[in-house]
Amino acid sequence: MTAPTESMSTIVPFEPVIVGFTCNWCSYRAADLAGTARIKYPPNIRLIRLMCSGRLDPTFVLKAFAEGADAVLVSGCWPGECHYLEQNIKALRRFELLRRIVVGLGIEPGRLQLVWASAAEGQRLAREIERVVEEVRALGPLDWGGRAMATSALDAGAVDAAAPETAASPEPVEVTA
């Protein structure tokens, strides 16, 4: 479904596909503001709105990689400015753990990035998106879904059944990584 064939990836110049998770209060509104202010950024990113970056279940990120995303951008309010007081700090904690797992799974750390953006920072978010797109373009395609299927460690069924538990609690994660 999402894995390109060899021949196609040689025909088409590589344009990374990045899934961005934004929070309803700061970063999604920063994206809104970038739009309202007509600030341009590359079309490689597709945003998903969550209520809070704290809602980001680590399996969402793994799912995005498995479905063919070349990178995932996580974005929320600046620490100290969370609409839910401190939930972005919890997101930050999970992010650091998740990045270790992701690296352990053979994915370059540059493919999972965290960007804080307040609702007033449309310009900043746009520039950060631009930066991430360029970094991922340099990294090349990920095609993790395909590899995961081949090794069967994280085939679709395994992700669904195992990942919520392993990824959400720190202890088993350490073992996996």
Binding site: V19, L50, R55, K90, P164
Partner: peptide, 30 residues
């Protein structure tokens, strides 16, 4: 906010409006 939903290792917490199913499906769709 959904932070507890993402934190539950048993998947016992669910949230209306931004459920795992909804977000997972949106990722697939995107």
């Amino acid at each position: 906010c959904g932070t507890c939903i993402a934190g539950c290792p048993a998947g016992a917490i669910s949230g209306t409006g931004f459920s795992d199913d909804q977000v997972m499906a949106q990722i697939e769709g995107l």
